[in-house]
Simulated scan of single mutants.
Amino acid sequence: MHRRTIHRTRIELTELGFGASVIGNLYRTTTAADSAAALDAAWDAGIRYFDTAPHYGLGLSEQRLGATLRTRPRDEYVVSSKVGRLLVPNEEPRGVDSEGFVVRDDLRRQWDFSRDGVLRSIEETLERTGLDRLDIVYLHDPDDHWRQAADEAMPALAELRDQGVIGAIGAGMNQSAMLARFLRETAADVVMLAGRYTLLDQSALDDVLPAAQESGKSVVAVGVFNSGLLSRQWPEEGMKYDYQDAPAELVARARAIAEVCEAHGTTLPAAAIAFPLAHPRVVNVTLGMRTAEQVTRNAQLHGSTVPGALWDDLRVRGLLRDGTPTPDHVPGPAAERSP
């Protein structure tokens, strides 16, 4: 699988990454066997970038990811995790986590972007995963904590990076405006952008992508299916968009894009994966994958050819914003299948 380097670092990411939130029992239970099978399938497909966080299943995702990756050669893969939510004992457990993960709530999340919180979080992640190091560390959802995240957490991560303990640092969020600030105003190397540069939402063209271009930094794109609406060949009513039921007008727009994709001999999910990779600052698309079958499907979608004429057709029809990059912006094998 083709790799791209995080700008100004030595960290190389495969174009497709494995998002490990779902193996932390996001929304429903996933067995340990299914999680291991999904990770093995990802490895067999050539995926070598794996992303997790303490938040995902109150540590379960990190534990499961580490259990599988510890059996693999450490220099052959890249792992990222996140800081900002410490896991602490829950004094008032109710039985099940209240933030979308089907796990016991013996622990709870505690916001902490202090220097000590960052160091403690990394140490606990290494204990849960059993790994010797993290290659990338992101600040996780610092929306309401800009000052502490920028003034304490990011300098702490920069110190670890400069010491060679971490390869790259950044922030991950569902909004793009603050990510642009992290790129412009802090030592971040890369940001994880969720859902703001997709076939249905190109708002990142107004802030984070220009910031990455100007600062010479990189973007990892996640949420490219917008919570599911772009994940099937033919979107239907009742599918999710940004964690909520998709409005009828967005379902109709997604179906219109799907019709153009079919006319060009491709599918909506294949185009959704290919689209962000056309931008010169996007180095990876990471997808949440629960089963081996999902991994195989997504790897095949990523490897399929998306005709360049599709993107021009979508622009002409007003289904894709003007100003999105064209294929010749992307060097190497990715160019043929990117917009």
Rank of each mutant, 00 (worst) to 15 (best):
Thr9Pro: 03
Glu15Cys: 10
Ala36Met: 08
Ala41Ile: 12
Trp43Ile: 15
Gly57Tyr: 01
Gly59Ile: 05
Leu60Met: 09
Glu62Cys: 06
Glu62Asp: 00
Arg70Gly: 12
Tyr77Cys: 11
Tyr77Thr: 12
Lys82Leu: 09
Gly84Trp: 05
Asp97Trp: 09
Val103Leu: 13
Val103Arg: 10
Trp111Tyr: 14
Thr129Phe: 04
Leu134Met: 14
Asp141His: 06
Asp143Tyr: 11
Asp144Gln: 15
Asp144Glu: 15
Ala149Glu: 02
Ala150Val: 14
Gly164Cys: 06
Ala168Gly: 03
Ala171Leu: 06
Gln175Glu: 13
Leu179Gly: 07
Arg181Trp: 06
Phe182Ser: 03
Leu183Asp: 04
Ala187Trp: 01
Asp189Asn: 04
Val191Pro: 02
Val191Ile: 13
Leu200Phe: 07
Ser203Val: 15
Leu205Lys: 08
Leu205Phe: 06
Val208Cys: 13
Val219Tyr: 07
Val222Glu: 11
Val222Phe: 12
Gly223Leu: 07
Ser227His: 04
Leu230Phe: 00
Gln233Leu: 10
Pro235Leu: 05
Glu236Ile: 00
Glu237Thr: 10
Glu237Gly: 00
Val251Ser: 05
Phe275Met: 13
Pro280Asp: 14
Arg290Cys: 08
Ala299Thr: 01
Leu301Trp: 02
Leu301Arg: 00
Asp313Thr: 14
Asp313Lys: 02
Arg315Asp: 05
Arg321Trp: 11
Ser338Arg: 12
